[in-house]
């Protein structure tokens, strides 16, 4: 995944069972964003791998004032890349459970 300047990591151990999982997002390189992020704190949130899309969360983060609306794509892509990695890893480690 290309470096968007926004980092998204698991905020808990993933055992492949739960559909909703805690993620943590923070800005690693503000220069890569179009707008100025509100503050460089880490934002932790729960994401439902089955029901939700990264764009939903990115839009809610913008609504909540964390990011400028011009950064919707970058934030959504950062979340999407991490979610894809989580699903890929689940498929490899717990194929029968998926």
């Amino acid at each position: 995944a290309e470096d968007t300047g926004v980092r998204v990591e698991l905020a808990e151990e993933d055992h492949g069972r739960k559909s909703s999982i805690a993620l943590r997002l923070w800005v690693e390189d503000p220069k890569k964003l179009k707008g100025k992020p509100k503050d460089n704190g880490a934002i932790e949130f729960t994401f439902d791998l089955e029901k939700e899309t990264p764009d939903d969360v990115a839009q809610e983060m913008i609504d909540s004032g964390f990011f400028h609306e011009n950064d919707l794509k970058i934030v959504a892509k950062s979340i999407r890349d991490r979610v894809a990695l989580i699903l890929w890893r689940r498929e490899r480690i717990w194929p029968r459970m998926q």
């Binding site: 980092r7 923070w26 690693e28 390189d29 503000p30 503050d39 460089n40 704190g41 880490a42 934002i43 932790e44 949130f45 729960t46 939903d56 969360v57 809610e60 983060m61 609504d63 909540s64 004032g65 964390f66």
Partner: peptide, 27 residues
């Protein structure tokens, strides 16, 4: 504590905490 919580109208909670210095690229 240095945690703040923001609840979006759709119900999702965002919990903001300081990023460890070590995780921030050189600005």
């Amino acid at each position: 504590s240095s945690f703040t919580q923001v609840v979006h109208s759709a119900g999702r909670r965002f919990i903001v905490s300081p990023v460890p210095e070590s995780r921030l690229k050189d600005q």
